[in-house]
Amino acid sequence: MPSLQEMAKKEGAFAGGHRMCAGCPVPIFTKMLTRVTDGYEIVAGNATCCLEVASSIFPYSAWKIPWIHTAFENVGASMSGVETMYRALKKRGKITKPYKFIAIGGDGGTYDIGLQSLSGAMERGHDLVYICYDNGAYMNTGVQRSSATPMGATTTTTPMGEQSYGRQGNRKDLSRIMVAHNIGYVAQASIHDPVDLSEKLKKAIELDGPAFINLLSPCIPGWKIAPDMAVELARLGVETKYWPLYEVIDGEYKINYTPKKEVPVTEWMFLQGRFKHLNKPEYSDVVDAFQKDVERNWNWIVRQAASVELLSAEVN
């Protein structure tokens, strides 16, 4: 597990002077990309998103590694192209060094518009790590709902009103969709735990083949929180089991962190402006439904992990 000291000794991938919002936690993972492994050339691609825009306002770029962005819905495909050209040139003897490729998208560019190109890239087996930083809405365009937006959250396209409590229905579980691609590595990580995250990045990068990491990354304006609160809210997202930390290696689930005590999801929700309208008795059914969904999801993962243990016990 790469410690902070070890990571600090390596050159980062991402420079200051970018124009992400003050307190946006996304650069926490971008600066790690070159710090978790040794011996690889790292190349990154980005879907259109906050990170993409704010890191590359011409003539400036925060990227200290080669980086390419082409469009919103296609980083899976454009990085398939980059990775394939690497293999082609390696085969022809024009490149000898080992390379690793990383594709980055927000939840809009990954859960929604980019799902097809992500699915294609993973199914074809490119040696590519896809990192989705999930902040639960289209933040770059001004907080519109995505299929990752949690129930009840207000966004600019699911506003709170006389006839609406915000986003209706449950969010999509992209991590499970990625597990269904039968790839070697899928993980959920959180921006508040850089050591766990670095370990997951390392495993994903070192794996020979496609890997997917879904990363909880709170958004200052989208969640309507103070600029120093992103890490704390990511932590609470994990403590309340809204965002379980787990990994699926070759189809086998493993929970990486079990909260020490039961923390109701409201402890996480009501620190955020996007949920505060629900903090009234008349919306208790929405909050209850939210809590139930969190529990159902957590229990589902627990069952998957338990069945792995059960099976390995039988084998032994």
Binding site: A15, H18, A22, S55, S56, S61, A62, W67
Partner: peptide
């Protein structure tokens, strides 16, 4: 539209924010 010297954002001042 290439930025040939990636990482040059260090020249951009964001401290004024």
């Amino acid at each position: 539209g290439v930025v040939p010297d990636g990482g040059n954002s260090v020249d951009y001042e964001t401290g004024t924010w």
